[in-house]
Amino acid sequence: MENAKNLEEFQAKIDAEIKIEPKDWMPEEYRQHLIRQMSQHAHSEVIGMQPEGNWITRSPSLRARKILMAKVQDEGGHGLYLYCATETLGVSREQLIKWLHEGKAKYASVFNYPSPTWADMGAIGWLVDGAAIVNQVSLQRTSYGPYSRAMVRICKEESFHQRQGYEVMASLMEGTSEQKKMAQEAFERWWWPSLMMFGPHDGDSPRSSNAMKWKIKRETNDDLRQQFIDKTIPQAELIGLKIPDANYKLLENGSYETSDIDWEEFWNVIKGNGPCNTQRIKHHAAAHDNGQWVREAAIAYNEKKEQKLKSA
């Protein structure tokens, strides 16, 4: 009975657009959904440092180097806010990382694609961050307070990233024929994976209904994907990139129709068979394991200091 009353009050708050805060009562399923979604989001930011980190040392100018390094640092910072926000649900960062390494927690599948050229730095910023923003703008209104506030902060930085990525692409498209080729190929590599970032069609998205009812999620996968497509195609055309889809067309309502996503590839990469799945987790786990003695040293040093203070 108590539970039914709690649930009713909880839903009333959600319906009244009152944020749920860490100490408020919440259904266990709501908590679990948030832990899964928020930690996946945090891991995505952190794993996302790798494909771009791949080009920091090879950045071709001082300006490009500073921007890329600052951008990758921002992603790490986003990961940090999101880990902290997830910890408000009663789970430690250590545990979340353990689940990541064990394959129990996921991260955005898009980061399982490689970044073979400098143009990928443009395509990732423009398309991957661009797709993330569409999703994150919507999540600013999510019902869980700490998540919503983290999103507000993150969105400000992501829109800078997207502009930075687009600027890289635009300048390549004004460059030599080799640079143009590089940009077009990177666009083709990242176009479909970025559309996949919004997830399966709404009908195939198993957890959508409660997430919508509880306003964790505010818009459907397909709606968000369409917003991204409609925003991105004109940007691509403006700088002379060719859309890698023979069937795309502009509809009368100003929206674009596109071919369907290759869902077989989508599920295959999610299942762990993408080009870089193993590499990404190995990299993260190695950094974590190599850092074990450093974390232990920091703890031991602090304990020694406390001991000294006590005995003084």
Binding site: V46, M49, Q50, G53, I56, T57, R65, M69, V72, Q73, G76, G77, G79, L80, Y83, H283, H284, A287, H288, N290, G291, Q292, V294, R295
Partner: peptide
Amino acid sequence: GEYVSHAPFLEEDL
């Protein structure tokens, strides 16, 4: 720059 994403924990990476 080469060390980015290899640090012992996230705060240190930043």
